[in-house]
Design a protein around this nucleic acid. Structure first.
Lengths: 106, 106
DNA sequence: ACCTAATGTCAGTTGTTTCTAACGTAAGAA
DNA sequence: TTCTTACGTTAGAAACAACTGACATTAGGT
């Protein structure tokens, strides 16, 4: 969770998340959007992946990334609780709800 | 906003925000909760203040801190929009609503 | 005036992040 | 097997953040 919070604290990483919010993009395509070198972006991707915010899929020599909704959801939930800890009860209920629906990713 | 995001990415600073969520505390009282030196905490307080997340009030030789709800609200709004940019319209409406109510701090 | 309490500020050290250039690797085409 | 494409990984530099100990400041008490 710590990692995720730090991950979204950097503008470029937030931008990356936005880029792969709805469609997959390859590492190279992502890198094209920024003026740092490709390895720099690659490191951001690794960090985001470790934070559980990104999914990676390999296709041939390419690596395709996209947002991992569950990760985003967890981060959101953590923050919701942070703003107001009294939401605990509601949160637990929502989780029970989630389990019932099974595999829904918000 | 950048500052605020970085501010809450550190556990001790989140803890500080929790401590002064409902009641004011002096710098010294806050520092007692942690095992780093007082200056370290003081720097955290400065950072949080700069991020707009903390209000400072002086009383004699003491400085009393408490959460600044407006700052927290802005940060929240920023994140809401980040999770789902389609909320723009709703957000603007909410802001209009805020202005109407004038000075309400959530 | 002098003292104490409560706190901020500064300089310097250490630790962490971020970046680039160079190198390594794995997939597929020729 | 050799070449190319699309990547990740590493080493080292540079920038940044976090601490601590020492000092400065400000309010009030005696």
């Amino acid at each position: 969770m710590e990692t995720a919070l730090k991950a979204i604290a950097a503008p470029r990483r937030r931008q990356i998340l936005r880029l792969v919010r709805d469609h997959e993009l390859s590492a190279g395509e992502i890198a094209l959007h920024f003026d740092v070198t490709r390895p720099a972006v690659s490191q951001d991707l690794t960090l985001l992946k470790e934070a559980g915010l990104l999914d990676e899929r390999r296709n041939g020599t390419k690596r395709l990334y996209r947002v991992r909704p569950a990760g985003l959801k967890d981060l959101r939930a953590f923050l919701e609780e942070f703003w107001d800890p009294r939401l605990d009860a509601l949160k637990l209920e929502a989780e029970r709800e989630e389990k019932r629906k099974d595999g829904n990713d918000d």
